[in-house]
């Protein structure tokens, strides 16, 4: 139903007054910030300068408050907006006769706003993070290449798929051997570090590392890329109550939780997907060094590490970085 002409004229006037009021408010707020950015004028001196500045600032703030109150009054007089923006066919939901009781469409609009905001922020985050890529393997290149080339179902394509399959199997066996050899090498290289290799779920290797009587760690590898590391105390286990391998649970000790966090940082920071052996080597070097320093240097300063973490933790991470370099 259309509104009567008089009412609609009043409505338009009220809206235009409100818009004017907003403009005034914006101008007055702008003046406040302008004064703040200009600061005190150097020509005047002493307390007089301060007093004048504060009085002027106070006056301008009062103007802002006045304009804001005016706007609030005007906004209260405005009738609620009946026209809602349309979202394609979904706008038909507004025609619901009991729309007041079930404001589905209003909720939908809010959700739409949120999702579009999320999309916008995700785009911004992608732009910001793209130069500092955290992808630690090159598999995505292969996957993307696969996606791009969809082969037609011919005998030729089938043979190509067979070749690819064969290649994958060869690579699989190759990685098996490479990881085994690497673990043997590392085990010999670090005498105070006991490394045990298991493959509980097929291809991914899981290294159980025990460092003297100091700590236990678990390292999950995908190929030669470190996927996950968890560090716990010597008196803790990586086994659930049902006897299964548990790589996710945290250590009950604060100091080892912090050490795990640092290993994660190092895991991401020192990853070279071209020569992954170096990453694992450096990783274990850090661990072994820290053991030599006595429940890791971290722990000697560990009280602070546990409780006031920030400063000490930074120092420790710096020392770790120094050692790696």
């Amino acid at each position: 139903m259309a509104a009567p002409p008089e009412k609609s004229i009043n409505f338009v006037e009220e809206i235009s007054t409100a818009v004017r009021s907003i403009q005034e408010l914006r101008v007055s707020v702008g003046l406040v910030f302008e004064q703040l950015s200009d600061g005190m004028k150097p020509t005047e001196d002493g307390d007089g300068k301060h007093k004048k500045f504060i009085a002027e600032f106070h006056q301008r703030l009062l103007t802002v408050v006045k304009h804001y109150t005016d706007l609030e009054k005007l906004a209260a007089n405005l009738p609620p907006s009946l026209t809602t923006p349309g979202l394609g066919n979904t706008s038909l939901l507004t025609l619901d006769s009991i729309t007041d009781k079930t404001p589905t469409y209003q909720h939908l609009l809010q959700a739409y706003k949120w999702s579009s905001k999320t999309h916008e922020y995700a785009g911004l985050a992608f732009t910001a993070l793209n130069p500092h890529s955290l992808k630690r393997s090159q598999n995505f290149v292969l996957l993307n290449a696969k996606r791009q080339r969809k082969l037609p179902a011919t005998t030729h394509a089938a043979s190509t798929q067979l070749i690819l399959f064969g290649l994958c199997v060869t690579l699989f066996v190759y990685f098996y051997r490479v990881v085994d050899n690497l673990v043997q090498k590392m085990d010999k290289m670090f005498p105070d570090m006991n490394i045990k290799l298991t493959r509980p779920i097929g291809s991914p290797a899981v290294l159980h590392i025990t460092l003297g009587m100091t700590l236990k760690a678990i390292m999950v590898l995908r190929g030669l890329v470190i996927e996950w590391v968890s560090v716990k105390g010597y008196d803790e286990d990586f086994v659930t109550e049902s006897g299964k391998l548990d790589i996710w649970s945290k250590s009950k000790h604060l100091v080892f939780q912090k050490v795990t966090d640092h290993t994660h940082t190092n895991m991401v920071h020192y990853c070279t997907s071209l020569v992954p052996e170096i990453t694992i080597g450096s990783f274990l070097v850090v661990g072994s060094n820290s053991s030599v320093c006595g429940v890791f240097h971290a722990s000697v300063k560990g009280f602070n590490l546990s409780h006031q973490m920030s400063v000490e933790a930074k120092q420790i991470s710096c020392s770790l970085v120094y050692r790696l370099d």
């Binding site: 009587m213 105390g233 250590s251 429940v295 722990s299 009280f303």
Partner: peptide, 16 residues
């Protein structure tokens, strides 16, 4: 709690 060898953490305990 995190340590089982006194030699490794005595300095820390003393400081605490």
């Amino acid at each position: 709690c995190p340590c089982v060898m006194p030699g490794e953490c005595w300095g820390l305990m003393q400081e605490f």
